[in-house]
Each structure stands twice: as structure tokens, then as C-alpha cells.
Design a binder for these strands. Structure first.
Lengths: 134, 134
DNA sequence: TTATAAAAGTTGTATATACAACTTTTTGCG
DNA sequence: CGCAAAAAGTTGTATATACAACTTTTATAA
């Protein structure tokens, strides 16, 4: 691969599509997408976290986050009328089940990719986030 | 980062969002998204390519590709009534301008990330595509 | 304490994406 | 050739995402 043909953004987008498909498959039994499962797990780990904080951490635009959260609320996973995000009992139980699924899958993926590839992602990640993040 | 907190798919999705934003910015002057610019450049490089081929190469689902192509057609960038995808004159000129923008940006990004990070992406990419692509 | 600036969140609009189900086109074979 | 199977492409429906403009909430300074 040379500079001419190797597009950083294009490659990252493709890998994200592939990984998303793989992780989505793991959650079909729970009827959640990986994106939703991820948010559930974040809120489970940090109850009361604000949309703005998740937005910054995950680099998701605030309006996109707003809609993700609205959907989770509609699904009965979030409580109402509170400053910050809190899971309902149902949301909490689902988050725990998702975490179990995620942990097993993610460990398997780490193992299959191998330490070099995983380390490659770490290197890229650090470089990209420190140097290119406005 | 340890296995517990380091989600491969989550990280890839975040990096893809960041990179997409960066590349999108470069194309606002041409009023195209990076995704559209990428397709334009692929079709410019391979006139007559089929949706199915792009779909496989880029790992984009065929229905998503169908809609991307419809949009490009509506924008006047694709000819009609032909087997395979062909750019109109307008599409072709736009593709050339996009390629110039892309080349400069992508070189700058390669330089800013540094060879280690770029190589990290290559390693990850090869591992992920060979081992996890169904 | 209150006016206002800043931050957070929402809504309108549009693209990007996927899955399932369906239609159309292509291809192989008898 | 002409049919049947496979491949390609489309459409319905839903989520994920972004930008711009707007509203609401929060924080700060006089």
C-alpha cells in the first residue's frame, strides 16, 4: 500500500463497518445494536453522566447523541426527569447482559487479531486523537 | 488500555467518526461528502465498475450502495442506461478536483500521523480483514 | 440576586448505513 | 435458444450520524 492508494479515512470507515457488523451480530439476541449496547455500558459504568460528556468521550456530535438517548428512553432503558443519564432497572439488567456478551466477544477479537494488530490500533488511535483532533 | 476497557469496534467507530469529519471538511468547498468523493474517485479509476464490486471492495452493503449511487445519479455525476457505472463529464471533472484535494490531505495526514501509526493501521487492517471478515 | 454569557440539549434536514424482502438481470446448462 | 438458478439491484423500514439553527439550562460576574 502506498500513499497514492491508501486512504486513511476510507480504510478506517471500512474497518468500522466490518467491526460494527461483527459486533452487531453478537447483540441480535438482545435486540440491541452495538452502538446502543455501548451507550448502555457507558451509562452503567458512570451513572448520571451527561450527554455532553459522552459526546466528547465518544466523539459523537451532540445532536446525534441526543437522538440516541431519545431512542434509549423510548425503549424504556433510561429514567426521566433527572440531570444526567440513569438506567432503569430494565436498562440496567440489559446493560449487564450486554457487558457479558461484549466481554467475551471483545476478548475473542483481541485474540484473533493478535497483539501486533491490536497494538497497531492503539498506536494509530493515540496519534490520530492527539494530532488530528480539533 | 487493557482488554476490559478497550473495545475494538468502539475504538474503530470513534476513529472513523473523527477521520470522516476531518476529510469531510476538506470537501465542503466542492459540496460533496467524503463518502461521495471516495465513490467518485473509485468510479473515475475504474469506469464501468459494478455496484456489486464496489460493495465488496468497500464492504458497504449492496442496498446502501444502491442508494449512494442513486444520489450520485440525481446529482448528475453518473450516466444512465448502462451496465456498470460511468461518470458524466461533470462527474469526471468533479472526481479530478476531489482527487487533488484528497491527495494533498491524505499525504498531510500520513505525515502528521507518522509511519508507525500508519503502519499500525495497515497491520490491523490486514489482520481484521483476513481473520474476521465472513 | 439577577442579567447575561456559555454550555447543553433539541429539532429540521440530509446523508450513510444495514437487514429483509422483493424484482430484475445475468449466467449456465440442457 | 430458453429456462432455472444465481447474482445484482431496489425498496421498505430503521438506526447512526452530522450541521445549522434554535431553545433551555447552567454558571458567572456585577
Amino acid at each position: 500500500m502506498n500513499t497514492e492508494t491508501y486512504c486513511i479515512a476510507g480504510r478506517l470507515r471500512m474497518l468500522a463497518r466490518v467491526a460494527t457488523g461483527l459486533y452487531n451480530d453478537a447483540f441480535t439476541g438482545e435486540n440491541v445494536t452495538f452502538a446502543q449496547a455501548g451507550l448502555l455500558m457507558h451509562i452503567f459504568a458512570q451513572p448520571g453522566i451527561r450527554q455532553s460528556a459522552l459526546s466528547k468521550t465518544l466523539q459523537i456530535e451532540k445532536s446525534a447523541m441526543s437522538r440516541d438517548v431519545q431512542l434509549m428512553y423510548k425503549n424504556g432503558w433510561l429514567t426521566d426527569n433527572r440531570r444526567g443519564l440513569f438506567l432503569t432497572e430494565e436498562g440496567s439488567l440489559l446493560a449487564k447482559r450486554c457487558h457479558k456478551i461484549w466481554k467475551e466477544l471483545n476478548q475473542r477479537v483481541h485474540a484473533e487479531l493478535g497483539p501486533e494488530a491490536v497494538n497497531g490500533l492503539t498506536l494509530l488511535s493515540e496519534s490520530l486523537l492527539t494530532k488530528l483532533l480539533s
